[in-house]
Design a protein around this nucleic acid. Sequence first.
DNA 1: TATAAGATTTACT
DNA 2: GTAAATCTTATAT
Length: 209
Amino acid sequence: MIKSRVSVGKKLAREFYTRSDTLRVARELLGKRLVVPSLTDGVRVSGIIVETEAYMGPEDKGAHSYNNRRTPRTEVMFSAGGVAYVYFIYGMYYQFNVVVNKRDVPHAVLVRAAEPEEGLEVMRERRPGKRDTEIASGPGKLTIAFGLDRSYNGADLTGERVWIEDVGRRLRASEIAYGPRIGIDYAEEFVDRPWRFWIKDNPHASRKR
DNA sequence: TATAAGATTTACT
DNA sequence: GTAAATCTTATAT
């Protein structure tokens, strides 16, 4: 059996994440490759990011860091961009975020969905009975498939545990769709802000609501 | 200490 | 379409 092969990628540098235009970073993460080498079992999994959401505390009522709320959970968002923010939600799921912007500006981008590339067999085991388009088509599903848990909170994305790389894919504006974020009905006037981005017509994005 | 709600998914009616 | 699963965090006694 022939091992599937993927294109060579270039790990995104700190400067990609520390930019102050968080919405732009959220858009530019589309088409990039999320890589988890999984040092424990030696299996490397990766996939192309196809859906993101921007969270821009302190102004954003949908963000955990709204009004600069600083707690043990939100602390990592106050770091300079380029680290992971992983938190547990609904008693069942982890969510994987990328911290963006300068130190003390608590912005983050939630990675909501990915198209699996490397380690597909392992991901299928972690997501039994699911079609390939459902393996990482949502933020909770993605963390299960990629094996991301709380131990990755605060991980440096320029390090060796988890990172995002450029695969030379350049998306046209017409290939990017946007709309309101999901699951933040409590956020009042921020509910309808079109801060969710996905690759248009990509079957690996989360289902429409 | 207690309570409510959550950046979700799944199974079931 | 509705609800259960299940636990951390924030906020209020």
